[in-house]
């Protein structure tokens, strides 16, 4: 398969992370967080997801680059394995 899942998945979590942390930063200290015991969960969790997304994306890109540099093996063997 020629699409490394880590790339779209990393992109999605990066975007979700950015959205949550920006929103959390903009609403910090608001009454919105009364229900969580005044913890700005959007900012905190948004940053966690952002880091997760970026790491996944970078790993995916690196895996893809490495796979492209590897010469294609004959299809009889397990040459199509990738992404580890």
């Amino acid at each position: 398969m020629n699409l490394d899942l880590r790339i779209p998945m990393g992109m999605m979590f990066t975007l979700v992370g950015v959205i949550l942390s920006v929103y959390g930063w903009a609403t910090r200290g608001s009454a919105l967080y009364a229900r969580t015991g005044n913890v700005d969960v959007n900012l905190g969790w948004g940053l966690v997801l952002l880091v997760f997304g970026v790491v996944l994306f970078v790993l995916g890109r690196r895996g893809e680059r490495r796979a492209r540099m590897r010469p294609p093996k004959p299809p009889a063997t397990d040459g199509r394995r990738r992404g580890h």
């Binding site: 398969m1 020629n2 699409l3 899942l5 779209p8 199509r80 394995r81 990738r82 992404g83 580890h84």
Partner: peptide, 28 residues
């Protein structure tokens, strides 16, 4: 849906479609 569209061009045989080409990594 984007993942679906991105994968569409790899679906050439019935093996690709039904068995994912038997080519996915173990962790996935």
């Amino acid at each position: 849906l984007g993942i679906g569209f991105a994968l569409k061009r790899f679906m050439k045989t019935s093996k690709d479609f039904f068995q994912a080409g038997r080519a996915l990594p173990a962790w996935i």
